[in-house]
Design a protein around this nucleic acid. Structure first.
Lengths: 139, 139
DNA sequence: TATTGTTATACTCTATAACTATA
DNA sequence: TATAGTTATAGAGTATAACAATA
């Protein structure tokens, strides 16, 4: 029989859960030398091509932070910069084939690791957790 | 009427929720110039005095990362280093009065911000979410 | 010898301010 | 003038390897 755990407040439960998930993300990324923010960058580009400002908006980062972030990913061959056909000031960032491969593979591993966190729940509990988390996310 | 949101997978829901909570943490910390890791450092020291290795274990950081982390907090007057009475190699890190004040105040603000995330849930839903999150946390 | 902690070093990540080029 | 992006700079945060002091 395992030890009883102290009851958690809602706040503590959400904070601790967030750290568990973030650790799973970091560990999945580390297998490929990717930081969490690099994972997020690839995630943003998974379904779209975007300019620096737009990506920064999604990640909550200043445009000056984007330059280095994208350059490091570019140096690793994961993304490319292209000139925008409509605006001479703008660049469009998109995944390379290698970047897309790594994105898909990483998503799979993240899925496995995060799913493993809920392995102790019943299917009904998992469904309910997903529903409640979704309600928080959607306001 | 608000727009329908796409149904989320369990993995996506947990990942997105973790980013929401982490953002709340970061914003609460930013009000006092504290990073998330500095908040965690104060949290570890809230209920105990600990050596560098022990703190690093709680935070998942190498001992070499601890030196700078603790020194920055020390320079701000939030923690102090004391020689261990039992081991001449070790130092004991503890909160200063100012550090404790900030820790309590920060915990309050984090509580408010994280609680606000669940403001749209009923009390029963909040209870259920807490129970399910606790089940994930406790294995 | 093993352990605790620091230092030296290198890198990622981030922001502010100043700058370039284009709109 | 305003906008998209980069550069210069500064600082936090992290790890690896080498080191000092103590156990």
């Amino acid at each position: 029989m395992t030890a009883d755990e102290p009851p958690l407040s809602t706040v503590d439960a959400l904070v601790q859960l967030s750290f568990l998930v973030q650790r799973a993300l970091a560990e999945a990324g580390a297998e490929h030398g990717l930081s969490v923010v690099q994972i997020r960058l690839l995630g943003v580009l998974r379904d779209r091509t975007a300019g620096m400002l737009e990506i920064g908006g999604h990640l909550g980062l200043d445009k000056s932070s984007m330059t280095g972030l994208v350059s490091r990913a570019e140096k690793r061959g994961l993304v490319r910069r292209s000139p925008s056909p409509h605006d001479g000031r703008a660049v469009l960032v998109s995944l390379t084939d290698e970047g897309r491969r790594l994105t898909e593979q990483g998503a799979e591993q993240i899925g496995r690791r995060v799913a493993a966190l809920t392995a102790g729940l019943t299917e009904a509990q998992r469904t309910e957790l997903t529903r409640l988390a979704g309600a928080v996310i959607n306001g």
